[in-house]
Design a protein around this nucleic acid. Sequence first.
DNA 1: AAGTGGTCTAGACCACCTG
DNA 2: AGGTGGTCTAGACCACTTT
Lengths: 262, 262
Amino acid sequence: MDQSSKKRTAPRVTRSPGPSRSGRSLPDEVSRRIVNDFITSEKLSAGDLLPSEGQLCELYRVSRSTVRSAIKSLYEFGLISVRNGVGAIVLPRAHEIPHGLDRLASIDTFATETGHRAGTADLSWNEVPADAELSKKLRIPVGDPVLVVSRLKLVDDEPAAWVIDYLPSHLVDTSDVKRRFKGSVLDVLLDDENLLVDYADSEVRPHICDEPLAKTLQRPIGTAVLYLDTTVFNVRGEPVIWGRIWLDPSHFRFALRRRRFS
Amino acid sequence: MDQSSKKRTAPRVTRSPGPSRSGRSLPDEVSRRIVNDFITSEKLSAGDLLPSEGQLCELYRVSRSTVRSAIKSLYEFGLISVRNGVGAIVLPRAHEIPHGLDRLASIDTFATETGHRAGTADLSWNEVPADAELSKKLRIPVGDPVLVVSRLKLVDDEPAAWVIDYLPSHLVDTSDVKRRFKGSVLDVLLDDENLLVDYADSEVRPHICDEPLAKTLQRPIGTAVLYLDTTVFNVRGEPVIWGRIWLDPSHFRFALRRRRFS
DNA sequence: AAGTGGTCTAGACCACCTG
DNA sequence: AGGTGGTCTAGACCACTTT
């Protein structure tokens, strides 16, 4: 087209300014630009159409594949809808999705991201031999050592969740985990590049507080809480944590965006 | 390339046999083939590597982009992990995730897919003017007519959930919905191509059965159930259903695969 | 060094929606 | 008819892992 003569001085979007290492991909960068330039800037409002893919290609000087990838992200993030033959429609940003239940992240991360202060109390570390249940959940032989970490999670200094994590000792160095622990066992393991932590399967159930739990969470006996039974796996599909969490729903809203198909 | 001399007689994967209209995309077709040929066929087992992307391109005679798209689907579906420089690793117990809580589908669909029989009882249809809460949830003026559909959902003839759906009357033709209703309001709307139903935001909370609910679900008073507060939106981000569901956890397990980032 | 996945480009053609 | 998104291809180059 036009590169015959000179390069346009248009602010072409590139991977990053410096040594091309910002962790950000080109599509992510384009997503960010689209959000800044059109969505949060209030240049467009809910129901309006984004510029067409072709226009965005010219604007940011990237290929259509890159623009399409960026648009897909915005769609999956719930910011726009896309209609064939029409365009990308800006959605109302009213709904927040406070804690994406489908995202693998720690309570500390969720709390911090939503502007709250996460804390830990009644922390205890134990090593026990695996019983039948632990053997099944962690897929290790009965009797193998298991690190048990239990604690009360505080949000803004109020009891919010009771958490017990079970880790196969052969996978983790107990003293190392202890040293790097800042409130979340999951975060320590997520940061460890050798463990290759990848995903978790959770099951959500309602639960009624019995006396010890009620006392711990400082709620009346009989209060309804959410129980999350979670197994975290590495990329090879081996269990690395079995976690049991009892959550006070007054401190944690569990929101979820559900989509067709997928 | 290689079409100069010999053509492979390999069974090139194409969009569909007939008039190219099966609704299935090429990447979806390739995904299906990969699952059939390598994962469920037990040719590979958990921890094994899929053939490389290049090999899959040759095998199915498609471009690398198509193969990568197929692989991404398998990843998002939780069937494989992918590691840079290594390959795609088959994950264990790939074949479950009974009720993906993150998927927009009806109770009937979930029940049927898991081999159960869905039923409906105590069905009632009403039209009421929107009060303040309905006005807020459905984003319509107070007083606007709202269709209220309540019923007991049965799974294998046992009470499993109490459901109330609220629909703005201006969006739906009540008699039409009634006529096409086969147990699920959501399914009727999902099938309607004019409504453009797109996604839902749900919030999950624990709930303790009071007397009327306990009686309806035939459970003891004080039983813990899950309460799902769900708003369904169309592609323009307009609410089309507000649904309230009380679920007996003994009939519905809510599983969720959680991934990093995303 | 060789092989793998990760990223990005350029271009072609199709399906859909709107005038 | 013309514009928009949807799909697929071919190829280039980079980053990562293994040998």
